[in-house]
Design a protein around this nucleic acid. Structure first.
Length: 430
RNA sequence: GGAGAGAUGGCCGAGAGGCUGAAGGCGCUCCCCUGCUAAGGGAGUAUAGGGUUUGUAGCCCUAUCGAGGGUUCGAAUCCCUCUCUCUCCGCCA
C-alpha cells in the first residue's frame, strides 16, 4: 500500500508514475472521495466531542441530584446524527481503503520504463552455455532415459495435471538442491533458517499483497465466513516469512533480519493454461528456498543487490549459466519497486528461463502489515523495508541441472557441490 | 471433541457503568544527590487519525483496554458473536 499522504496530496505525480507500469489511477474519483472524507471526518469528530461533553455534564448533574430529563431530551437528536455520521464515515473509509489496497507500488527511478517482459534490461551474464556434441534432450526426456525419476502420469492419477511424483536419484537430487541452498544461505550469507506454516490467513495475504487482487492465483482451503478468516496454501514462503514482522516494532539493533525457508509453494496458475504444459517448469506445487530481509529504509537498495547476489551464488556454485535481468515497469510484481530476475540457461529450450526473482518492496508491504522499527533515540517507530527473493526455485534448478549436466550416453553428472548431499554419487545412470 | 478460566499500556497488575488514556509496581529516559561498581529524590515514558500552523514544534480534538456488533445520555466495566491463551478430561503423529 502506498502512503495515504501521497494519494491525498500528490495524486497527480503518483498517477503519472503508476501509469508507467500500466496502472491507471482514477485521480478524479480519488480526489472526490478524499474531499468527502475530510469534511465527514471533521463532522463526525465534532459530534463525538459534543456527545462526550454532554455525557460528562449529565453525569455531573446526576451526581449532584439535579433533574436530568431535559438534558437527555437535548441529546436525543445528537445521538442519531452521530450514528449516521459514523456509519457514513466507516463506509467511505472502507471504500477508500479498498481502492488503496489495489494500487501497486511506485517503480524506482532506476527501473526502465516498458510495457512487458520484452523491455526488461539485461544487466549481466555469468557462465558460458555448454556446447553439446549430441542432440540435447529436455529434462523430461533426460529423466525418462534414466528411468521413472519424473513420473507425471502417476501424479496426474493422484491429483491432476501440473503435479509431479519424483523417484530415486532424481528425488534425492531434488532434496540435495534444497539442502545446498539452505546450507549456503544460513552458513555463508547470514540467514536464519525458519520453518513456517504452509497455510496462512487472510491478514497475512493482505499484508504481502496477494489479496485482495490476486486471490484467483491461490488455493483456498477454507472459505472466509462472516466472522472467521479463510486459509490459503502459500504461493511462496515470502508470505509467512514477511508476515512474521506484521504488527511488530523492532529495535534498530535487531536489523537487518534475514530469514530463509524451504517450503513447497502452491499456485493455481489460473490464466496460464496453455503455457509450459510440458515438464516441471510450471507446476501447481513446487519447492523453493526463499530469502527475506527486513531492513532499515536507507539500506534497502543495497540489500537488494546483496540478496540478489546470494541467489546468484547458488547458480555459480552449480556452475549454471545465467543472466541477470532488471525488470521494466510493466513486468514488475504488484508490490515491488525494483526487481531483478535471474534466468538460467536451458539448452533444450535454447534460452534463459526465470529461476529467481528478487525484489525490494520498500515500505509497501510494511505499511499494510504495520511492520516497524524504532531507530536508536527516535521517539516514533517507522515502517521498515521488506525484500524477498527466490534462492532459488528448486524444481527449476532440477530442470536446469538435468539439462545442463546431461551426457551423450544418457547419464547425468551430479554437480560437484551436490555430491556431499548425494552420498558421494557422481553420475546418475539409467 | 467435552468442561472450566482468562485476554487491560514495553512487562506485571488494579479497575466491576460517569471524575480512568487508564491506580500501583517493574523496566526505560532525563535531571538531582552521593567519591567509588550500592542506594535515594524528582520529572517523563502508548499508537493512529484529524484540526490549527511556514512547520516532522506547540496547542486542541477523535479513536483505541483481544476483534466485531449491541444496550446506554455515557462502556475497559453489561449483553451477543468470533479469535486466541491457559487448566482438566478424551483422542492423536
Amino acid at each position: 500500500m502506498l502512503d495515504s499522504k501521497l494519494l491525498r496530496t500528490d495524486v497527480e505525480t503518483t498517477a503519472q508514475k503508476l501509469a508507467t507500469r500500466g496502472f491507471t489511477l482514477d485521480v478524479d474519483a480519488l480526489n472526490a472521495l478524499e474531499e468527502k472524507r475530510k469534511s465527514l471526518q471533521i463532522r463526525t469528530q465534532e459530534l463525538q466531542n459534543d456527545r462526550n461533553v454532554r455525557a460528562k455534564s449529565i453525569g455531573k448533574a446526576k451526581a449532584s441530584g439535579q433533574d436530568i430529563e431535559p438534558l437527555l431530551a437535548e441529546v436525543a437528536q445528537l445521538k442519531e446524527d452521530l450514528a449516521n455520521a459514523e456509519h457514513e464515515l466507516k463506509e467511505l473509509l472502507a471504500e477508500i481503503n479498498s481502492i488503496a489496497q489495489t494500487v501497486p507500488n511506485i517503480p524506482h527511478e532506476s527501473v526502465p520504463v516498458g510495457k512487458d517482459e520484452n523491455e526488461n534490461v539485461e544487466i549481466s551474464r555469468w557462465g558460458e552455455p555448454k556446447e553439446f556434441d549430441f542432440d540435447v534432450k529436455d529434462h523430461v526426456d533426460v529423466a525418462s532415459a534414466l528411468g521413472n525419476g519424473l513420473d507425471f502420469e502417476t501424479a496426474t492419477k493422484l491429483t491432476g495435471s501440473r503435479f509431479i511424483v519424483m523417484n530415486g536419484a532424481i528425488a534425492r537430487l531434488h532434496r540435495a538442491i534444497a539442502q545446498l541452498m539452505l546450507d549456503l544461505h544460513t552458513q555463508e550469507h547470514g540467514y536464519q533458517e525458519c520453518y513456517v506454516p504452509l497455510l496462512v490467513n487472510h491478514d497475512s495475504l493482505l499484508g504481502t499483497g496477494q489479496l485482495p487482487k490476486f486471490g484467483e492465483d491461490l488455493f483456498h482451503t477454507k472459505p472466509a465466513t462472516e466472522e472467521g478468516q479463510g486459509l490459503a496454501l502459500i504461493p511462496t514462503a515470502e508470505v509467512p516469512l514477511t508476515n512474521i514482522a506484521r504488527d511488530e516494532i523492532f529495535n534498530e539493533s535487531q536489523l537487518p533480519i534475514k530469514m530463509t525457508a524451504h517450503t513447497p509453494c502452491f499456485r493455481s496458475e489460473a490464466g496460464s493454461y496453455g503455457r509450459d504444459t510440458r515438464g516441471l517448469i510450471r507446476q501447481h506445487q513446487f519447492d523453493k528456498v526463499e530469502l527475506v530481509q527486513l531492513v532499515e529504509p536507507s539500506k534497502s537498495f543495497d540489500a537488494l543487490e546483496e540478496l540478489t547476489g546470494h541467489a546468484e551464488k547458488v547458480l555459480q556454485l552449480l556452475n549454471l549459466p545465467y543472466r541477470k535481468m532488471l525488470l521494466c515497469t510493466g513486468d514488475m510484481g504488484f508490490g515491488s519497486c525494483k526487481t531483478y530476475d535471474l534466468e538460467v540457461w536451458l539448452p533444450a529450450q535454447n534460452t534463459y528461463r526465470e529461476i529467481s526473482s528478487c525484489s525490494n518492496m520498500l515500505d509497501f508491504q510494511a505499511r499494510r502489515m504495520q511492520a516497524r522499527y524504532r531507530a536508536a533515540g527516535a521517539k516514533k517507530p517507522e515502517l521498515l523495508h521488506t525484500l524477498n527473493g527466490s534462492g532459488l526455485a528448486i524444481g527449476r534448478t532440477l530442470v536446469a541441472i538435468l539439462e545442463n549436466y546431461q551426457q551423450a550416453d544418457g547419464s547425468v553428472e551430479v554437480p560437484e557441490v551436490l555430491r556431499q548431499y548425494m552420498n558421494g554419487l557422481e553420475i546418475i545412470r539409467p
